[in-house]
Nucleic acid binder design. Structure first.
Length: 556
DNA sequence: TTAGGGTTAG
C-alpha cells in the first residue's frame, strides 16, 4: 500500500484536493477496505462535493451501508450547496425515516437550504422539528434560523429566535446584526453592536461587515465614518471583507474620495474590493473613472472575473462608450467569460445602449444558455431601436420556454411600445402585467404609461390614469405627464400637473422651466415672468442637460 | 480515533 493509515487520513483532510486526486484517494480507501467506515466515506463525499462532482458523492453515499450523522450531513450539504434544494430536502426526509437522528448541523443546513429556496412553509416545518428535538436554544440552529428568517424579510421571527437564546454567542449576535441590516434596520443593527460592546463581547470581521453593510445612504455618512474609525482602532480595516464593504459603504454614501481613500490604504486589495470601487464610480455616474480603474487592474496583471466584467460593461453602456465596450468584449472572449449568462447579457445591453443592436443581437444569437435577464436585455435593446414586433416575439419565446417574466421584462415591453407608438399594445401589456402576472407596477412602469398615452396625445386619459391609482405616485410620473403637456401645448392640464410637482418637489427647477415654456408657447407671458421671478427669488436653478454622441466605429 | 457545521464583502 502506498499510504499508511495516518497519511491517508491526512490527505483526506485537505479540503483543496483536485477531482483526480480525490478519485485516487477513493481508490486507495477502497483498496484498503475502509469504504464501509463512514469516516472515510464522509471525507470523500466532502471532497467530491467541493469538486462539484455530486454524482460521485451520491454514488459513494448510496454504497455506504453504515451511515453516520456526519455522512448524512455531508451529502445533504453537498446538494444544498449546489442549489439542488429539492434533493437536499428529500434526503433530509429520508434521514428522518432512519435510526439516525438529525443533529443541530443537519438542521442548520436544511434551514439554510429552505431560505435560499424561498421555501417559507418548509422553513416553518423545519423550525418545528428543531423545537421538538429540543434544539430551540442551540446556537448553531438558532443562528441559521435568524439568517434564514431575515433573508426572507421575516425579521420579527428572527428577533423571536434571538430573544429565545439566553446567552447569545458572537455568531448569534452577528447573524442578528446582519439580519437587521438585510431588512433595512441599520439603527437596530447599531444598537445591538453597542450592546455587544457594553457586555464586553468582542466583535469580529463578520460583525463589522454586517454593521457597515446597513449604512447605505448619504445621510448616514457620519455614522459610517464613526464605524470606520472603530475599524481602524481595532485593526479590522485590514480584513478583506471589511475593506471592501467600507469601499461600498462610502460609494453608497456618494463619497468616492473616502471610498478611494480606503481602497489605497489597503495593502493588497482583492478582486471584490477593486470591484466595489469600480462599481462605486459607475453608480455615481463617473464612468470614465470606472473604466480607468478596470484598465489599471488589467495593467497590473490581475485577472477580472465575470461579476466585475459585467459591472464594467454597465459603465461602458451608460457612457455609450462602444470603444471601451468592444475592448472589454475582447477580454471576455479571451477569458472565456462569454459562457457566463451574466456577462453576455451585459454585452447585449452595452451594444444596444451604444446604438449597435445588431451586435447585441449577434451576442444573443450565439448564447447557449439564456435566462430572464438575457431576454430582458434583448427586449429592451430591440424596443429602444424601434423593433417592437421583434421585442414581442421575444416575450412570446420567454413564455414558451417557461421562463418567468419579471418587472424588468414588462418595463422593457412598455419601452418598446413607447418607441413604437403602440398605445393599444401598451395598455394591454400593462393589464397583463398586473392581472395575469400579478406584478405590482413600479414608478418606471407608470412613467412609460405616461409617455405612451401622453405622446399619443391622450393627455386626459394619462391624467385619469394617475388619479385612478390607490397610492400617490412619484414626482417623476407627474414630470413625464408635464413633458407631454409641453409637447401638445396643453397649458390648462400643465397648471394642474405643475401644482402636484411644486408641492412634492418645490426646489426642482426643471419642472418650473418646463411650465414656463408651456406658458410661453401659449403666449401667457405674464405667467412666464411671474414663474421666472419666483425662481430667481427662491434661488431655484435648473441643472443644464448634457448629451453627447460617441463616434461610430466600424466593426467587422 | 479522526469526521459533518451556524454568521461576512463586489
Amino acid at each position: 500500500m502506498l499510504f499508511n493509515l495516518h497519511s491517508l487520513v491526512f490527505e483526506l483532510s485537505k479540503s483543496h484536493q483536485s477531482l483526480s486526486r480525490t478519485k485516487e484517494l477513493h481508490a486507495l480507501v477502497t483498496k484498503a477496505s475502509l469504504l464501509r467506515d463512514p469516516f472515510y466515506a464522509t471525507k470523500l463525499v466532502r471532497l467530491y462535493s467541493l469538486n462539484n462532482d455530486l454524482y460521485s458523492a451520491r454514488n459513494l453515499f448510496d454504497k455506504t451501508p453504515q451511515r453516520s450523522v456526519f455522512l448524512w450531513n455531508s451529502i445533504i450539504r453537498a446538494y444544498a450547496q449546489n442549489h439542488n434544494f429539492n434533493d437536499a430536502k428529500s434526503l433530509f426526509q429520508n434521514m428522518l425515516r432512519t435510526q439516525i437522528k438529525p443533529d443541530n448541523f443537519t438542521y442548520a443546513c436544511v434551514i439554510r437550504a429552505c431560505s435560499e429556496n424561498f421555501d417559507f412553509d418548509g422553513l416553518r416545518l423545519v423550525h418545528g422539528g428543531v423545537i421538538v428535538s429540543s434544539l430551540g436554544m442551540d446556537s448553531i440552529t438558532s443562528s441559521a434560523l435568524i439568517s434564514a428568517y431575515s433573508n426572507l424579510s421575516l425579521v420579527d421571527e428572527a428577533i423571536k429566535v434571538f430573544n429565545g437564546v439566553s446567552d447569545p454567542d458572537l455568531v448569534l449576535c452577528n447573524s442578528m446584526i446582519s439580519g437587521f441590516e438585510y431588512c433595512g434596520f441599520w439603527d437596530k443593527s447599531l444598537q445591538l453592536f453597542n450592546r455587544m460592546l457594553r457586555l464586553g463581547k468582542n466583535p469580529d470581521g463578520y460583525t463589522l461587515v454586517g454593521l457597515i453593510s446597513g449604512i447605505r445612504e448619504p445621510k448616514l455618512f457620519s455614522i459610517g465614518q464613526g464605524v470606520h474609525g472603530f475599524c481602524l482602532k481595532s485593526g479590522f480595516d485590514s480584513n478583506d471583507h471589511v475593506g471592501s464593504v467600507l469601499v461600498s459603504m462610502y460609494a453608497r454614501c456618494k463619497c468616492m474620495n473616502s471610498a478611494y481613500g480606503v481602497f489605497i490604504s489597503l495593502f493588497q486589495p482583492d478582486l471584490v474590493t477593486w470591484s466595489a470601487l469600480i462599481t462605486g464610480y459607475s453608480q455615481q455616474g463617473n464612468y470614465e473613472k470606472a473604466l480607468y480603474f478596470f484598465r489599471k487592474l488589467i495593467m497590473e496583471g490581475k485577472k477580472a472575473d465575470p461579476v466585475l466584467v459585467a459591472s464594467v460593461l454597465v459603465a461602458a453602456a451608460q457612457s455609450a462608450n462602444v470603444r471601451s465596450g468592444t475592448v472589454i468584449h475582447g477580454y471576455v472572449i479571451q477569458s472565456g467569460f462569454e459562457l457566463s449568462v451574466m456577462v453576455s447579457s451585459a454585452l447585449i445591453d452595452m451594444y444596444s445602449k451604444c446604438g449597435f443592436i445588431d451586435l447585441g443581437f449577434r451576442v444573443f444569437a450565439t448564447m447557449s444558455e439564456r435566462n430572464i435577464i438575457t431576454y430582458n436585455s434583448i427586449i429592451l435593446g430591440l424596443g429602444l431601436h424601434g423593433f417592437a414586433y421583434q421585442a414581442f416575439k421575444m416575450f412570446q419565446e420567454i413564455i414558451e420556454k417557461g421562463l418567468k417574466a419579471d418587472e424588468s421584462t414588462f418595463a422593457a415591453l412598455l419601452c418598446a411600445c413607447c418607441h413604437g407608438g403602440l398605445v393599444n399594445s401598451g395598455r394591454e401589456i400593462f393589464r397583463r402585467m398586473t392581472e395575469e402576472f400579478c406584478i405590482q407596477p413600479s414608478t418606471e412602469h407608470y412613467i412609460y404609461m405616461m409617455k405612451l398615452l401622453g405622446m399619443a396625445g391622450n393627455l386626459e386619459e394619462a391624467y385619469s390614469f394617475i388619479l385612478s391609482l390607490s397610492k400617490p405616485v412619484d414626482s417623476a410620473v407627474w414630470g413625464a405627464l408635464l413633458s407631454c403637456c409641453e409637447i401638445y401645448g396643453n397649458s390648462e392640464l400643465a397648471d394642474i400637473v405643475a401644482q402636484q410637482l411644486f408641492t412634492n418637489d418645490p426646489r426642482k427647477g426643471a419642472y418650473r422651466v418646463m411650465l414656463s415654456n408651456i406658458y410661453a408657447g401659449d403666449g401667457r407671458w405674464d405667467d412666464v415672468k411671474e414663474l421666472r421671478n419666483d425662481m430667481v427669488d427662491g434661488g431655484i436653478r435648473k441643472v443644464p442637460g448634457v448629451s453627447w454622441i460617441a463616434g461610430r466605429i466600424n466593426i467587422a
